[in-house]
């Protein structure tokens, strides 16, 4: 049975039960976070690295978490920042290389249209990509997205609409207007 965030934080705040609390946190969040990161970076190996870094950062800074935001949105923000940092580091690597990596990833089982979707996703500006992944794949509500990305609900809705339009256009015509 998964613990509530409040219970997890109580365990973590006590030196005697910190490991138990962190175990519970990993149990609860590793899978949704993995899929969020995986959608952002596509390749399993990269998602695995980012997930590890995310949890290490969470562990190191959980003592400073004051509870002003929900634990859920705080962890997602760390994972999102880690993914964006990774994507920015890989900017110099050409798109072709990224597509080959995806095709060679044994854990990618998509057909041609999924590959196209992946290309289109990589062509989006990082912030728009974040919005798309959180809404389309993670099916997160706008209020939580607003907390994670520190952006107004209206701006997020507009951003998602733009992303959907661009991707649809690319899937149909092979052109994306960034």
């Amino acid at each position: 049975m998964q613990l509530e965030d409040k219970q997890i934080l109580e365990l973590i705040s006590d030196a005697e039960t910190i490991d138990k609390g962190f175990n519970a946190l990993v149990d609860k969040y590793q899978e949704p976070l993995y899929w969020h990161v995986r959608r952002m970076v596509q390749v399993h190996e990269d998602a695995d690295d980012i997930l590890q870094n995310t949890f290490i950062k969470v562990y190191k800074s959980i003592a400073k978490f004051r509870g002003d935001s929900k634990l859920y949105t705080w962890i997602y923000r760390i994972a999102t920042n880690e993914s964006i940092t990774f994507i920015n580091k890989r900017k110099h690597i050409d798109e072709l290389n990224d597509n080959i990596r995806l095709q060679e990833d044994p854990f990618f089982d998509g057909d041609e249209i999924h590959q196209k979707l992946s290309v289109a996703l990589n062509k989006l500006p990082p912030k728009q990509k974040q919005v798309f992944v959180l809404r389309y794949y993670d099916e997160m509500n706008y209020k939580d997205m607003s907390d994670i990305l520190e952006t107004s609900v209206g701006a997020l809705k507009a951003s998602y609409h733009h992303a959907v339009k661009k991707i649809e256009n690319y899937l149909k015509q092979g052109i994306i207007h960034v």
Binding site: V26, W35, H44, D48, P106, F107, F108, G110, H114
Partner: peptide, 17 residues
């Protein structure tokens, strides 16, 4: 379209700990 290796989440948790 995306898959994960078998037992990935269990192994990942052990590695993290």
């Amino acid at each position: 379209e995306l898959l994960v290796p078998d037992g990935y989440f269990e192994n990942s948790k052990r590695h993290l700990h």
